[in-house]
Simulated assay, not measured.
Amino acid sequence: MQKQKTYLDSFPDNNGYFGKFGGSFIPPELEKPFLQINEAYNKLSKDFNFLNELKSIRKHYQGRPTPIYFAKNLSSKVNGNIYLKREDLNHTGAHKLNHCMAEALLAKYLGKKKLIAETGAGQHGVALATAAAYFGLECEIHMGEVDIKKEYPNVTRMQILGAKIVPATHGLKTLKEAVDSAFEAYLKDTENSLFAIGSVVGPHPFPKMVRDFQSVIGFEAKEQFFEMTGKLPDMVTACVGGGSNAMGIFSAFIDESVKLYAVEPSGKGDKIGEHSASLTYGEEGVMHGFNSIMLRDEQGNPAPVHSIGSGIDYPSIGPEHAYLHSIGRTKIGLCSDKEAVEAFYNLSRLEGIIPALESAHAVAFAMKYAKEHSNEAILVSLSGRGDKDIDFMVENYPID
């Protein structure tokens, strides 16, 4: 009897589409290098030596598997059952290294000499600079001028690791502009460089490739949670900007009867420029080489966005998230700046875990959800730690 194909085996299709979302909308000069990346990934994803090397790196260098932790004190506060998948304990302090080490390994197999990338909160930049140092590659990180000031501890880390920081000084000077800048730099040297996209966004094959590299989160969590509790969680939740940590943890549960909530940043209001909630307020459109749901201004251009979390203030979302939401497989959770700040301090003081502000969005939503679903087991992707945010927090949201 032929084995039934899983969701992950079925999506995306050969052209990189999840339903009508995804694809590759790129200038002609990028078609060849992106085809080369796709062909290399299709080959290496089945290559024993590549997979074995990646497995060894994850175990002996990254410190995987990361644990699941039952947040007893936080759960008691809301009369719920909240568990955390501790990606903050992954080397460099976030989930980003899961795909960065893999992308750098791919670059090595392709004979590339340089990694180019964008970063928002700096976690992807730190992770890629780490991977570049490990493999002896050059590294160039593009970062919005606003985020450079806000997340300066991560800028320092990237510089110590040997990365060149390129400020994005146009537009709002945040994540979208950093992506624009990185794309322009990559166009100038596709022969020697790999554009290591930092989320499940961009032209095919990056939404699939980054999802696959991040799926280690979900498959570890599924096994660990069952071993710990004897069942699967009732609900799994994660913050989304582009959505890499969310697709990572969702991957293992899509074919299961588990509720999946993608938590968007509702920022400080529902007007354009006050939030980054693409699925909630957006519409279909193409940006940065892929078709998805995006926030637009009155002229139809990418809208200005806002979030207290620099890693999730992006005016679109990964195409797979758009597809899963369109078919009803995932639901949207919302978290405001204020709620994220409260969750940041709650988790810090109740559990001794300082979360990234991005991750605090998922924690805040889990706390709200738990108050209304006290019997459900909730698994949160704690995508990163908050070292990068502590100066910003004490300056702008002083401790009581």
Rank of each mutant, 00 (worst) to 15 (best):
E256Y: 10
Y17K: 00
E227M: 14
E87C: 05
I354G: 03
F11P: 00
S326Q: 09
H91E: 10
P304T: 14
G273I: 09
S24Q: 10
V394M: 11
M209A: 03
A322Y: 00
H91G: 06
H204A: 01
Y17H: 06
E103P: 01
E177R: 10
N98M: 09
S199P: 04
K173R: 15
L260T: 06
M235G: 04
S292R: 03
G309I: 00
G202N: 05
N42M: 13
A117P: 00
K55E: 14
G202T: 02
L279H: 02
M294F: 06
F50S: 02
H60V: 12
S310V: 04
K5M: 08
I312D: 01
V126P: 03
A129V: 09
F226N: 15
K55L: 11
I317Y: 02
F290D: 00
G125L: 04
A107G: 04
D147L: 06
L357C: 10
L382C: 05
K149M: 12
L115I: 12
G171W: 08
Q159H: 12
P304S: 13
A364F: 06
E227V: 14
N81L: 05
D255E: 11
E118L: 07
G120C: 05
Q224F: 07
L347T: 12
Q214E: 11
K32S: 14
M367E: 15
G269S: 11
G242H: 05
H95G: 03
R86F: 05
N301E: 15
K113Y: 12
L379G: 02
S199Y: 06
F70A: 11
S244V: 01
E256Q: 10
F50D: 05
V155L: 09
L175P: 04
K5I: 04
D13T: 04
L115G: 00
F344V: 08
A238W: 01
D234A: 07
E256M: 09
V126C: 08
I293V: 15
F21C: 00
A127M: 08
K85R: 14
I327M: 07
M247H: 03
P315M: 08
V240Q: 00
I249A: 03
K371L: 12
K231H: 15
I116W: 03
A185Y: 03
D400P: 15
P302C: 10
P27S: 14
A107H: 09
I57R: 01
E298Q: 15
A71V: 08
E118M: 07
H306K: 11
E138V: 04
I317C: 07
V155I: 14
K5R: 15
M367Q: 13
Y345G: 04
A366H: 04
P27H: 11
L382D: 01
D212S: 11
P153V: 12
I254R: 03
I353R: 01
I26G: 01
G122T: 04
K338N: 14
F365P: 01
E145K: 14
L187P: 01
K164E: 13
T130W: 06
K338E: 15
Q123Y: 09
K231F: 12
H288F: 13
M294R: 10
Y397K: 07
A131R: 05
A107F: 09
L8D: 07
E220G: 03
V363F: 08
S326G: 08
L279P: 02
E395M: 13
K114P: 01
I327S: 05
V236D: 02
L106H: 03
H124S: 08
F392P: 02
G63Y: 12
K59P: 04
E256T: 05
S310G: 10
I293H: 00
F365V: 10
G63F: 12
Y41R: 01
Q2W: 11
F135L: 10
